[in-house]
């Protein structure tokens, strides 16, 4: 079976609001599939339906060949989940958390110890395995959750915003683990994120989601190719003059003013940089600065939605405050 996940017109509606709107996606076996979009785009709702936590309003989906509504138990056995919010038992040790999971998922008793030791090694938590998880840092808990999601050898691992609230170094670590897991266990990974770099660096294919719909789906490089090309940003003392030089004399039509700079979209940015400066000098325009940017997913998102995907920092800060409040409440 090549399509490990298929959705057909999958929809989840809350009253009139369609959180997920007639979704049709297929995920290939063995790939890392990224769902990218701003908060509220419907990523978590999509994952929740695929994980049988939420029932779809209409439409169907299969995971590992099982219907997410009619064969929910089979789906559950086929998947591992790392939730957006922490979900370890903080009064239990890391090892106990893993053992509980192994028992809940029916891992044969004879294999439990072996598998637990293996996943602990994978996420480098062997030394802290017998400490209560309440003494773990956020990153360690996240790693434990990754390890936990693998104990029952799932076919698909769902990661819902796996690095939200983690520091950059830990994020790098988590990414490394996810790639290693995928290689070592030959599993399919579906991850949601609103971090562009995360989607870019981890995913084989990326689905960009907005307002409950997929607006673009392809590999990261193909998505970027759909954009016209590189963006050159020039600041100069006379932008109007420079604009006319660039459009009329150089024939670069995709140029427009942005605030106090000129943005030019071109195919071969690197070779054009010196020519632009030359032309400016010839026409007695002083170039203050010039910058070349190759397209990133941010631009792709902007291209398709006309908006930036600005990570919602307030929500993240709120999440951190929430975590502290809970910690204090203990």
């Amino acid at each position: 079976m090549t399509h490990i996940i298929e959705t057909h017109q999958l929809t989840k509606a809350y009253n009139s609001l369609k959180a997920v709107d007639k979704l049709d996606i297929t995920v290939e076996s063995g790939e890392i599939f990224g769902l990218l979009g701003p908060n509220g785009a419907g990523k978590t709702t999509t994952i929740s339906m695929l994980c049988t936590i939420l029932k779809p309003t209409s439409g169907t989906a299969t995971v590992n060949g099982f219907d997410i509504v009619k064969e929910a138990m089979q789906v559950r056995k086929s998947i591992g989940i790392v939730f957006q919010d922490p979900s370890v038992d903080d009064r239990m040790t890391g090892r106990e958390n893993l053992l509980m999971h192994a028992n809940l998922y029916g891992v044969p008793t004879s294999e439990q110890n072996n598998r637990i030791n293996n996943v602990l090694k994978l996420v480098e938590l062997e030394e802290r395995a017998d400490d209560l998880t309440r003494t773990y840092s956020g990153g360690m808990r996240r790693r434990l959750e990754l390890a936990r999601g693998l104990i029952h050898y799932p076919k698909v691992l769902f990661l819902d915003e796996p690095t939200i609230g983690l520091d950059p170094q830990t994020r790098d670590h988590v990414w490394k683990y996810v790639r290693e897991l995928k290689e070592a266990h030959d599993i399919t990974v579906v991850l949601t994120t609103h971090y562009m770099d995360e989607a870019d660096r981890l995913s084989d294919r990326i689905a960009i989601m907005d307002y409950g719909k997929i607006i673009a789906l392809d590999t990261s490089s193909k998505l970027k190719e759909t954009l016209e090309g590189d963006v050159i940003t020039v600041k100069a003392d006379n932008l109007e003059a420079l604009l006319s030089v660039i459009t009329e004399k150089m024939g670069l039509q995709k140029a427009h003013m942005v605030d106090d700079a000129l943005e030019i979209t071109v195919q071969n940015g690197k070779s054009l940089l010196p020519r632009i400066v030359d032309m400016a000098t010839q026409n007695k325009i002083y170039v203050e600065s010039i910058r070349l940017r190759e397209p990133n997913l941010e631009d792709v998102f902007l291209h398709y939605t006309g908006r930036t995907i600005r990570p919602d920092t307030t929500k993240e800060l709120h999440g951190l405050a929430e975590a502290r409040r809970r910690a204090a409440a203990r």
Binding site: C51, T52, I53, F83, S87, V88, D89, D90, H101, L104
Partner: peptide, 9 residues
């Protein structure tokens, strides 16, 4: 504390 989700799925 989130553990309920682990049980429910």
């Amino acid at each position: 504390f989130g553990f309920m989700k682990e049980i429910l799925v």
